[in-house]
Design a binder for these strands. Structure first.
Lengths: 251, 251
DNA sequence: AAGTGGTCTAGACCACCGC
DNA sequence: CGGTGGTCTAGACCACTTT
């Protein structure tokens, strides 16, 4: 009914010497203020000109920050009305994070076992999807992921050779995407197909489910900034223990 | 190896009298040039300052346009290198379109049968997900979608009353989202959970599959600009005939 | 009418990249 | 080094929403 409150952002501290862009500093400060509950859902922010003045920024710079937050679904902005903190309806951004990151984020302890790690010539279909020549040598990786002793995924990946070296042990400690990032490789765009089928006997054994249990399947090709192939992933999950969650924002 | 060509965008026609923002005009012009093949993947664009000059725009305005196209995965931009048209690896944006739209877009003819359309009090769990009071009256809709005679989805939806009226017949002609848009309701953010399970006898009958066949399941809550609940959808798809595709761009 | 975000301009300087 | 995109400024005017 009445005003839900006016947020004062004047005390955000910006570091003009930092290499981190100012608008990005604003994004992360406001983001964490919302996460910590200092900015409650429904709270109305001051208008853009006023916030910019308080922070000592130009309006375009501040707008860039707010635009990012709107994109993430954290803020809602309407002409003539103002900017308010979005309701809490989850705000998990749909991004190219790995399952590993997701699980760690909620405090669970996934364990990974590397089942396969070798160089293979690219099968025709996989070569086509990754846009490499058939027969090109690819790194084949197969991992089993468990959480509290229960298998939750069998992940098969094909990567162009040279992206990773003999890093099988590290794959037991870290996610594939984290390992790639550490080597300076940034997946940027990914095409995913999600479907379902029944577990074969071999899959059932690996995943500790009965034969014919429902599996969630995901097939993904990922490319970097320059459009170079990074990875093809074929993942299967026991549907009884796993689901994919995503938040979609319409622009 | 050598230059892949230099695109001249100077002949894009902009209408400064139009209510459509200039940057948006640039976005749609370039978008359709790429779709029509006038701008081939790999083609390098002139630098921002030059394009802006050619179009008679300021650089920030042009940058806004290019940023949108990069977001959509149509262009790739790298500091020091330039801007090029992205490789063709699909570019289906992951958005809140309906299955209906998707199928029509590829020229297929889906048919929809409305199985249920009535007002019901909100069950507790559904009320919580939609952030309405338990017992609030909701519109319950259940539809069966077929393509070339084969069922591909059973869609169950709950909407706050008042968003739609007695429009059951129209639901056989148009998608739910299209109908909502026509009434000025714009879903903006949606949380989706995708998983899988086996078909019950009743579901198997509806979907023309055997009992125990794998089903892809999707549960979605959607909210509008102002964070008001728009819809809760519970969809099931016969996995043997349907998969979900999405393109994810990391920002 | 008043207040808000939306669009647009014309510059400036910086950081990264390949040569 | 020269060229590119990345960031930032200080304004201006417009369109929409509510009072």
């Amino acid at each position: 009914m009445s005003d839900t409150g006016q947020a004062v952002l004047a005390d955000l501290i910006l570091d003009r010497e930092s290499p981190v862009p100012l608008y990005h500093q604003v994004v992360s400060r406001i983001e964490s203020a919302i996460e910590r509950g200092e900015l409650q859902p429904g709270v109305r922010l001051d208008n853009e000109v006023e916030i910019a003045r308080q922070l000592g920024l130009s309006r375009p710079t501040l707008r860039m920050a707010i635009a990012r937050l709107v994109d993430k679904g954290l803020l809602i902005r309407r002409r003539g009305l103002g900017t308010v903190v979005a309701p809490a309806h989850v705000r998990r951004p749909f991004a190219l994070t790995s399952l590993y990151d997701d699980l760690v984020a909620v405090g669970r302890r996934p364990v990974t076992r590397v089942l396969g790690f070798k160089s293979v010539p690219a099968p025709e279909e996989i070569a086509r999807e990754l846009t490499v020549q058939p027969g090109t040598r690819l790194l084949f990786i197969r991992r089993l992921r468990l959480i509290e002793g229960e298998p939750i995924a069998v992940m098969t990946n094909y990567l162009p050779e040279g992206l990773l070296r003999a890093e099988a042990p590290e794959l037991e400690e870290s996610g594939l995407y984290r390992l790639l990032r550490r080597r300076g490789i940034q997946p940027r765009i990914a095409n995913q197909t999600v479907s379902a089928r029944l577990a074969s006997a071999a899959e059932a054994r690996l995943l500790s489910v009965r034969r014919g249990a429902p599996l969630l399947t995901m097939r993904r090709t990922a490319f970097d900034d320059a459009g170079r192939p990074v990875e093809l992933g074929i993942h299967i999950y026991p549907a009884e223990r796993y689901s994919l969650e995503m938040t979609v924002v319409r622009h």
